[in-house]
Design a binder for these strands. Structure first.
Lengths: 220, 220
DNA sequence: AGATTTATACAGCGTTCGATGCACAAAGAT
DNA sequence: ATCTTTGTGCATCGAACGCTGTATAAATCT
């Protein structure tokens, strides 16, 4: 689809193309664009803002990324690749579904409040899904990645298989709940909530966990 | 501040001003603008979109509302006045804090999914707080109304006073949790979640309630 | 070395943005 | 009846938008 499918990385490793070489680091430029989109949203970020932050001219931007839409799509994927681990690394290694959910929510609290490293607040994907509904890029993006809900649902299913979660639990509903709490954290982080506040939310959510599982047991 | 402080309503009740009377219903126009901002967000809504939906000319819009920012602020207040009851009416009359929280979450699920009446999905205020960070109107608005958090916190405090909630409960933290769940619902609603899904989230949240309260009791 | 290919810098394209100036219409005030 | 005040319709304003045409610079290919 793209004419520059060949170049996987900004580095000048092997596979030099013919003409004049690019004078800027493509990955670094994408990094800058991602941060800008993440901070200000799609509509509020202009090409001028982007070229300034990326340190390149408009013509180079279009040559390297195609269009504002395409750049935004690439920025979204770059975001997930680069920052997704902040919420998932510990959760993936947790032995039980409960510990996975707890790790996911606490680590999300830390990441979304910008406490882990220097980064904008809130989840870029969540913000994009709200602010840019008309944009085709967002729909394509959502369809192209494994969503938070799918990951959570899969992990909870594994919990049922492993026996640390009773089969009476509605894993889809529970996954939806955890995802909703994280989305809400994203909103609160964007509105200034600090790490302690978000961890308080995670704590309350997890304090209810056993009751939730028990309720499902009594029902089913 | 505004030159048209005198006119409280669009109706031609008493208090006619001097010049030519307005040819359109101000409240109906504000209604149309609110729906449009709610649906598309601030940035994605142009003056042309507004004038078309409101059925008036640009000059009349500026004469009646001042500017796009001022119109948006007024639309936000109009939204809270008109739709706030959907989430709060039943909760306000609930006898206990628990029933109030449950009513708030279930009624939010119904309203946010657009199931109560014909209206856009998600909470306009939540969406505005995310999409329009640079906008002065949003900050002023947030400072000028009693927020969801403040209402929830006050209701939970009353629950402690009434004795249906133990004093060991951190009401601020619990209020923050409920507010976060509602914000998350708003995001999910915006992304297509239907009423049943959102009610599932409310159900899971409330299934954990007693465990949350009990955990606070054991801790404090 | 010469030809080809690609990137860069600069200026500017057509469009849309939020907001206004102007002439006229319709009401109250005198 | 006339003056004053205000709303409306139309035509635009300057600025910013996303994007591109042109000329030049820097690399590879033959």
């Amino acid at each position: 689809m793209h004419k520059d499918d060949a170049e996987q990385s900004g580095d000048l490793t092997l596979r030099r193309s013919r003409g004049r070489p690019r004078a800027f680091d493509r990955t670094a430029a994408l990094d800058a664009a991602t941060t800008l989109f993440w901070t200000n949203g799609y509509e509020a970020t202009s090409i001028s803002d982007l070229t300034e932050a990326m340190g390149i001219g408009a013509k180079s931007l279009y040559a390297a990324f195609g269009s504002k839409d395409a750049l935004f799509t690439e920025a979204l994927h770059h975001y997930v690749r680069k920052y997704g681990g902040l919420a998932w690394d510990r959760a993936r290694e947790a032995p039980t579904a409960r510990e996975a959910a707890s790790a996911f929510l606490y680590d999300s609290a830390a990441a979304l409040s910008g406490s882990v490293c220097d980064m904008p607040r809130g989840c870029m994907a969540t913000i994009a899904s709200l602010g840019c509904e008309g944009l085709a890029a967002v729909g394509e993006f959502a369809a192209s990645i494994e969503t938070t809900f799918q990951r959570l649902e899969a992990r909870l299913k594994k919990g049922v298989d492993d026996g640390d979660l009773p089969p009476s639990v509605d894993v889809a509903q529970l996954a939806r709940f955890v995802e909703t709490v994280q989305s809400g954290m994203s909103v609160k982080a964007r509105n200034g909530a600090d790490r302690a506040e978000l961890e308080g939310v995670a704590k309350v959510a997890m304090a209810g966990w056993d009751g939730i599982v028990r309720a499902a047991n009594a029902e089913g």
